[in-house]
Every structure is written in C-alpha cells, then in structure tokens.
Design a protein around this nucleic acid. Structure first.
Lengths: 233, 233
DNA sequence: TTGAACTATAAGTATGTACATATTATTTTG
DNA sequence: CAAAATAATATGTACATACTTATAGTTCAA
C-alpha cells in the first residue's frame, strides 16, 4: 500500500481522482502540497504539478499560490465542445453536402446585428443567406453579415464555390469568437427555408468572430428540427 | 529581429499565434519541430512543448509523434462551456432561487431512458420532475431518472431541501457525463409547467452521468423560452 | 506485390535544480 | 493599534538532460 509508486502524471491524476471520488479528499478540503505528494508518490514535483494542473483545468481542483490546492466545492465542470464546420459535419455522416445562396446583397443591418458588429447607423454590410443541404435535404441555414471594411477581398470572392464560412476561415485570420446557443420557434420564413412546420422548435447558434478588436462577421445558424450537439466531460 | 528571444511559454505561444494569424504559417503547413523552434526562440524545448501543447488543446494545431506539428486545416475550435448548476446560475443573476418537486415516484422508464441507463426491461427507477424558479417564474424543469441500485442512500434523502442534482453532486462521486444540446417544441405538458405557449421553441439539455461504467442518472432540462448558453473561444 | 520487420524521428514525459510570483502570516514601526 | 515592511510558503515556470513511445518511411522477405 505505502510502497506503491505513481510515476506518470496520468497515474498521479488517476490516484488523485480516486481519492476525491472515494471522499478521502472531500469538496472544500485542502490536499497535501505538491512537495508532500511528490514524496508520497515517489515522483518529481513537476509530475505532481502536471497532474494537478490538468485537474484544475477541468474545474475539479482550485489552486492558488501560497494558499494551496483544494477540491472544488462546486464541480462546475467544463465541457469542451467542437464547433462544427457544417460541410465536414455532414460529410462525416456519409451524406453529400451542397449549399445554395438564397440572398447575397449589401444592406443596412437590423439594430441587433449593428450592435453586435459595432458599426455606425446607416453603414451597409454584406448580407448572405445560405442554405446547407445534407443529401439534398435542408440541414441548416446561415444568416450572415460581414463587415467588408474588415475583410479585404470578400467583395471579389466567389462565394458559390466555397461557402462564406470556408472562405473566411481560409483567408481571414481571427483571434476569437463568442457563441450562444438557444432555441427559437420556426416562423413562416424558417419553415419555408428548412421545409419544416411553422411553430417547430429549432436549434440556433449565434456566432461573432473578431480580429484585432473588429468584428469580422456575425452569423446565425438555424438548424432543421432534430439537430443535436454532443459533448462529453 | 533575429535576436528576439521568447523565454516564457506564453510569449512563445503568442509568437506562434502571430505567425499563424499573419499567414506565415498557413493552415495545413507543418511548422518547425520543437527542437528547431527552441533554438530559434532561445528557450528550452520543454517551453516550446508547453506552448504548442496548449495550442493543440484549443484545436489550432495538430500534433502527432514522428509526423510533427501542423496548423490545423479546419480550425474546428473547441469552445469550453461551463455546465451550470442551476441554483448558482439563477443566484448569480441576483434572482431568488426556488424549486418545487412536481413528481417523485418509482416507475419503469420509457425505452429511450432505459437505453441510456442500461437497465433491464421492467426495472423500476426513481423518477423526479422538478421545476426551478427564478424570482418565482419558471426557469427550467428537470425530468430526471436515477438508478437507485447505483446510488445508495437516495431513497432516504430529503430531496425537497436540496435539489436532486445538488444532493447527487454532494454525495455521489462521478467519473464523467455526456451532454447533448437541442431544441424541442413545447407541447401541452411543457407549456403548462413552464407557463409558456404551446408550440414555442425550447432549449433542451440532456445529460447522463456515470461512475464505474454505471449510469447514475439521466436528466433532461427543458428551459423556458429565451434561455441562452454563452461561451467564448 | 503484399506485408512484415526495422529504423529514424518528433512528440511525450520524467527529473533535479533553480528561480519567480502571488499571497498569507508575522513582525516591525509610526 | 493600525499600517507598513518583512518573512515564509505553495504554486508557477524555466531548463538541461535523459529516456519513452508512436509512427512515417524504408528495407527486406514471402
């Protein structure tokens, strides 16, 4: 029992997890410091550090300098989910991908979009509505606004070959984005585009992407009924 | 230019990011290996490793032994989202939290739940339907099934004081869970419970939690209209 | 010509040491 | 006695080195 050694950070992590799960270390408890654990586990402190850091990343431990490491009181665990590129998602299911551009123009965006994209009133943006189909059936449609002032070359791009998303990903670097996930009720327009019934619940992803503080594009993806996003902890 | 040194893993990461964003390293490109970068950056290979590993974790780089490191072709970036504990989420908005138990019984689950929970046909499970309210207004309701064979003590627990979720989190260790996010259309039951209109689109989270390969609980959270989950990259 | 064995390579990991940094605890000082 | 200076401490990081592991690429054999 006392002679057991944990030489890899994964095995250290597993042992720490075991102690947490077995309630040997309870939520809120301080656990021994890295130096002590490294002695007990018969490994280097760096190995313990790696294991504990990984657990802190998942939200299971709280760590603070000088204070020490404690088991998180509320395991608000962080799930990581892959933001799908629609084409790959569809092709990954063995279905054939196709998309059609329903609208492609320049227009003054509604106020909600204007706020998201931080543009002045009256400024026209590129507006694209694209329907993505899986095996010919509507899968999701994207209502996208692009700020051409931030995206050189987009005016000249052929967005019928590649989708706007693919073109942007391939040509414009970006720093980050924010996402929101929600549900909406299909109105007349959504029902028509997605070939579903009015009043059906639809899964919606809103995404804004920025670079150097400027919003490149803002898009709302409205999925056909039945869509699910999956993730594991 | 050539004399610049990057001594911390954060600065190495920033420089790598800069090169990716500036298209010096394009999607699909192999980047120099760790040893070469450590020479160029004037730091240890471990420092480069730390930086690149972090970027690989976010999905921006693909790394494989022997093959090397390349800029991800499709930045299927991984968003991390915090799975909320409903009470804290509501209280975090400055609203008062309250919950009521609508159903509390033992019953044979429908086949979908049975499949998720890997139980035999005919086996009864604990079934709990709980409505969570924010400032007295319906916020979300949970339709939960618990396998009492896996959860000792649940029968005796007082689930009116703490919600089932809080009780489980506090008393039963768990290894992991899987989540799915989707939308549904409010039927008669949902409309009644959440005080919304029939036919409204509702945001839904399905979650299963397991330990030692056994499914502890499976819950569907159905949120009142307007709910959003947010995350950033 | 397929496939099995081998080899070289790049990432992955472990370790001892050293120093940095944040933060708590203690002591000194006004 | 409160505020400021100081010490103590646990995590955080860097580095040189050494060894491990997965695997792409090559060679060899059936």
């Amino acid at each position: 029992m006392s002679g057991e050694e944990f030489k890899t950070w994964q095995s250290v992590q597993a042992e720490v997890l075991r102690r947490i799960n077995s309630r040997q270390w309870k939520p809120g408890d301080f656990i021994p410091n890295e130096a002590e654990l490294s002695v007990e586990f018969g490994c280097a402190r760096a190995t313990v550090n790696r294991a504990l850091r990984a657990l802190a990343d998942t939200g299971l431990l709280d760590r603070r300098r000088k204070a020490g490491t404690r088991v998180a009181l509320n395991p608000v665990r962080k799930a990581t989910l892959d933001i799908p590129v629609i084409r790959y998602e569809i092709e990954g299911k063995g279905q054939t991908y196709r998309h059609t551009v329903l609208e492609h123009n320049r227009a003054v965006p509604p106020s909600g979009i204007r706020a998201r994209m931080q543009t002045e009133p009256g400024v026209k943006l590129l507006h694209l509505v694209t329907l993505h189909l899986a095996d010919g059936k509507p899968y999701v449609f994207g209502d996208r606004w692009i700020n051409p002032a931030v995206v050189p070359g987009i005016e000249a791009a052929d967005l019928s070959a590649k989708s706007a998303n693919e073109w942007l990903v391939a040509n414009i670097p970006f720093e980050g984005g924010d996402f929101s996930f929600s549900a909406m009720t299909a109105g007349h327009r959504e029902a028509e585009i997605l070939a579903c019934k009015e009043g059906e619940g639809l899964f919606v992803i809103d995404r804004s992407t920025w670079n150097k503080g400027l919003v490149i594009t803002s898009v709302r993806l409205t999925f056909a009924p039945g869509y699910q996003m999956h993730t594991k902890i």
